[in-house]
C-alpha cells in the first residue's frame, strides 16, 4: 500500500512537472531568444545564445521609450488603485450603515452594472469625453478606471463591512470621533485584508489593460507599457531580437513583483472569487 501510493504520487509529480514545463516554455523561449541576433533567432530558435549580449535590450529600451511608458503605467496603476480602494470602501461602508431604500437600489444598480462589458460602452464613452476635450491625459484615464473599477470593489467591500460589528464604531463615536474619523481610524484599518484583495485584482487588470488606454491615450508620450509594446511590435515586425527583448522588459517588472508577493496574489484571487 505504502509503495503503491508512493509510485502514484511520483507519477503525478512527473506529470505535473511536464505540464509546468509546457506552461513556462513560451517564456523560456522568449528569454533565450532575447539575447540572440536576428539571424540566430530565425535559423535556430531553440538553441542557447552563443554569448550574453544585452544589445537587444538597450535597443528595445530606447525604441520603446521604456522609461516613459513604465512610469506612465506605474502612475496610472498606483493612483487608480489607491483611489478605487478608498472611494469604494467609503461608499460600501456608507451603504451598509445606512440601509435606506435609495442606498439599496443604488447598490443593486452597481452590482447589475458589472454585467456590462466594456465594448458596449466604449463608443459612447469616446464620443462623450472626446467632445468635451477630456481625452489624451493620464488623469482622464485614472478617472475612468475609478468608474469602471468601483462596482466590483464596492461589492466586495460591502460583504466585509457587514461583518464588522457596529458596536465598534459606536464606541468610537461616543468617545468623540466624527463619522469621518471613525471610518479612517477604525473601519478602514480593519478592512485591510479586503483592501489587499481589491488592490491585487485591480493591479492585474489596470497594469495589463490595453483597449481603454488605446482609446484614451493618443499621444506617444502618454503611452502605457502594453501600448508601447503594441506600437513597437507594429513598427519593427521583422527585427526579432529587440522585439523579444522588448517583451521581456514588459514581463520582467510583473515577475519581480510576483516573486515577492506571490502568496498574496494567489490569496487575493481566491478571496475575490468567493462572492
Amino acid at each position: 500500500m505504502e509503495n503503491r501510493n508512493g509510485a502514484l504520487a511520483f507519477t503525478k509529480f512527473i506529470a505535473l512537472l511536464i505540464c509546468l514545463v509546457l506552461f513556462i516554455f513560451p517564456f523560456a523561449m522568449l528569454l533565450v531568444n532575447s539575447f540572440k541576433e536576428n539571424k540566430a533567432i530565425t535559423s535556430s530558435p531553440l538553441s542557447l545564445p552563443d554569448s550574453f549580449s544585452f544589445a537587444n535590450y538597450t535597443n528595445a529600451f530606447g525604441k520603446m521609450s521604456y522609461v516613459s511608458a513604465f512610469s506612465n503605467s506605474v502612475v496610472i496603476t498606483v493612483v487608480s488603485v489607491v483611489l478605487i480602494s478608498f472611494l469604494a470602501a467609503m461608499t460600501a461602508h456608507y451603504f451598509v450603515r445606512n440601509q435606506t431604500k435609495l442606498n439599496q437600489y443604488t447598490f443593486f444598480l452597481m452590482v447589475a452594472a458589472m454585467i456590462i462589458p466594456f465594448q458596449a460602452i466604449m463608443i459612447p464613452l469616446v464620443k462623450i469625453y472626446g467632445s468635451i476635450g477630456f481625452l489624451n491625459s493620464k488623469w482622464a484615464l485614472i478617472y475612468m478606471y475609478a468608474g469602471f473599477g468601483s462596482p466590483l470593489a464596492v461589492f466586495i467591500y460591502h460583504g466585509f463591512v457587514k461583518s464588522i460589528p457596529a458596536e465598534l464604531e459606536e464606541a468610537a463615536l461616543i468617545d468623540g470621533c466624527t463619522r469621518t474619523q471613525t471610518f479612517f481610524r477604525i473601519v478602514f484599518p480593519v478592512l485591510a485584508p479586503t483592501t489587499v484583495t481589491i488592490a491585487i485584482l485591480n493591479v492585474l487588470w489596470i497594469w495589463n489593460d490595453f483597449l481603454l488606454p488605446s482609446l484614451v491615450l493618443i499621444s506617444p508620450d502618454e503611452r502605457t507599457l502594453p501600448l508601447s509594446t503594441f506600437y513597437f511590435f507594429g513598427t519593427y515586425t521583422v527585427d526579432y531580437g529587440p522585439l523579444m527583448a522588448g517583451l521581456m522588459l514588459t514581463i520582467l517588472p510583473v515577475l519581480v513583483v510576483y516573486l515577492f508577493a506571490q502568496k498574496y496574489i494567489i490569496q487575493g484571487v481566491m478571496q475575490g472569487s468567493i462572492k
Binding site: 516554455f25 513560451p26 530558435p45 495589463n208 502594453p226 509594446t229 514588459t250 510576483y258 494567489i266
Partner: peptide, 29 residues
C-alpha cells in the same frame, strides 16, 4: 500553483506576441 498562475500576470497583448513567435518560428523550426 504559483507556476501555473504566471500567464495571468501578463496582458493579452504581450501573450499574443509571445505566442505569435512560438507558432510562426519555434513550431515551424
Amino acid at each position: 500553483r504559483a507556476g501555473f498562475f504566471i500567464p495571468n500576470l501578463v496582458g493579452g497583448i504581450v501573450l499574443g506576441f509571445v505566442w505569435q513567435f512560438i507558432f510562426s518560428n519555434v513550431f515551424v523550426y
